[in-house]
């Protein structure tokens, strides 16, 4: 989908409120957002819930906000990012209450690995991608949240630095340095694990 097409879709959805235009946008962005959320939450079910929430919010507010093709991408990723943060806040509280009940932390975030997800999941493509390189995923998990988000947005979603800066509320230069540190950290992790 080009920028022009996206622009026209947004405008027409605003004017007519027709679901057809929303569906076009949805089909284009769904897998991207899902990927972004999954790599940042390390929980398949949670990722599914969050992606549905993201598009629900997009549907609800798209006609109320002035958007164009330039501002749409950062907006949608920002919604996803904020919902992930919300999820972690809620989850921390739940874990606290659970740990008092059962006196073990098996449900905590740290014990959930992406490799666990791949065992749960039966869909073939996801499994392949995750099984091929479990070390890389572990390395990704060792990064901080912002570093991981920047890496995913830059190399998977191929957004430019300006839009990434708009998503994570930082300047272009800061985004570049975060990327640099993230890559060096990843490399260190991976070489250490091999040795």
């Amino acid at each position: 989908m080009d920028d022009k097409e996206l622009d026209s879709c947004i405008k027409r959805f605003k004017k007519t409120g027709d679901n057809l235009y929303f569906e076009k946008i949805y089909r284009f962005f769904f897998q991207k957002i899902y990927r972004f959320v999954l790599l940042n939450t390390s929980d398949r079910h949670m990722a599914e819930d969050i992606t549905v929430d993201v598009f629900y919010k997009v549907y609800k507010y798209m006609s109320k906000i002035n958007l164009n093709s330039i501002s749409f991408k950062p907006w949608i990723y920002k919604i996803a990012r904020n919902l992930i943060i919300d999820y972690y806040r809620k989850d921390k509280r739940q874990i606290k209450s659970q740990s008092f009940d059962s006196l073990d932390n098996t449900n905590s975030i740290n014990s959930l690995t992406i490799s666990d997800i791949s065992i749960e999941n039966n869909s073939t493509e996801l499994n392949e991608a995750l099984f091929n390189n479990p070390k890389l995923l572990e390395g990704l998990r060792s990064l901080s949240d912002i570093q991981r988000q920047v890496i995913v947005l830059r190399f998977l979603e191929e957004l430019d630095y300006k839009t990434i800066g708009m998503i994570i509320n930082k300047r272009e230069f800061a985004v570049r340095t975060i990327k640099y540190r993230a890559i060096t950290k990843l490399k260190e992790k991976l070489t250490n694990s091999i040795n």
Binding site: R35, L126, F155
Partner: peptide
């Protein structure tokens, strides 16, 4: 370094189920 980044790029294959995609749309 180049390998790592190409590995990351390969993660593009991560996809949700098409069934789930349709279900989510109806849900919304």
């Amino acid at each position: 370094y180049a390998d790592i980044i190409s590995d990351i790029r390969n993660l593009k294959n991560v996809r949700a189920d098409d069934k789930f995609e349709n279900y989510a749309l109806r849900n919304i």
